[in-house]
């Protein structure tokens, strides 16, 4: 158990935090949130932002980082790399906002003072605009879904529970749970993509 083996270990496997983030484990999501929010908040407060803006920017950055880790677009070697990545995304998002016409309209600001965004291995905007449009339509549709379907789909796709576990919880057999999932997905698909066809 020599100390020197730590780094070897970390290069061989990704950290438990990263693995747990990929399957949405609550303790991992919470750790990432709590370990990083403070730093981002003080960055934004120091750079003409408000607490509400800090929260919004941090949460958007959190979602981007989480998505890229899940899609293996960013492969962190350890927890420190994850934290640095999240901070950089948040910083870039805030700088983008400060440079945006929306912000400039709000205050007269000399944009030459703003630092250039830091280069990142992968950024949140990797997905096409077309996909992002689909995504926001899908999120709106999910809101309209019945509670039973919402809960079922969350168990499958967010909590990543197995068919067996879900069937037990809902007191039905696995085949029925599977069929119910299919039907819920079809309702969601129609709500999102077929309802407003002209």
């Amino acid at each position: 158990m020599a100390k020197a083996t730590t780094s070897l270990y970390q290069n061989t496997f990704t950290s438990p935090l990263v693995e747990a983030l990929k399957v949405n484990e609550e303790w991992a999501l919470r750790t990432l949130y709590k370990d990083n929010y403070g730093k981002v908040e003080s960055l934004i407060l120091r750079n003409s932002g408000t607490i509400e803006e800090a929260k919004d920017i941090f949460q958007e950055a959190f979602i981007s980082a989480w998505r890229n880790i899940k899609d293996n677009k960013f492969l962190p070697e350890n927890n420190g790399a994850v934290n640095g990545y999240l901070y950089t995304i948040a910083k870039n998002k805030w700088m983008d906002y400060l440079r945006s016409p929306e912000y400039k309209k709000k205050v007269s600001y000399n944009s030459s003072n703003i630092a250039e965004p830091v280069h990142l291995p992968a950024d949140a905007k990797d997905d096409s605009d077309e996909f992002n449009k689909k995504l926001s339509v899908a999120m709106e549709a999910f809101e309209k879904l019945g509670e039973a379907c919402k809960n079922l789909l969350i168990k499958f796709y967010f909590e990543k529970k197995s068919m067996k576990e879900i069937a037990e919880e809902l007191q039905m057999d696995a085949a029925s749970a599977r069929n119910k999932k299919y039907r819920c997905m079809q309702v969601l698909r129609e709500l999102a993509f077929e309802k407003n066809i002209k």
């Binding site: 949405n24 609550e26 999501l29 919470r30 949130y33 709590k34 929010y37 929260k55 949460q59 959190f62 979602i63 989480w66 998505r67 996909f131 689909k134 995504l135 339509v137 899908a138 999120m139 549709a141 999910f142 809101e143 789909l153 969350i154 796709y157 967010f158 997905m185 969601l188 698909r189 999102a192 993509f193």
Partner: peptide, 25 residues
């Protein structure tokens, strides 16, 4: 489309959780 739907389900739930964490903090 299915990719967008799966993504949406996870992101919706995650956003809820983030607000909970914020509240705790």
């Amino acid at each position: 489309e299915v990719r967008a739907l799966l993504h949406a389900i996870e992101e919706k739930k995650l956003r809820e959780k983030l607000d909970d964490f914020h509240e705790e903090l």
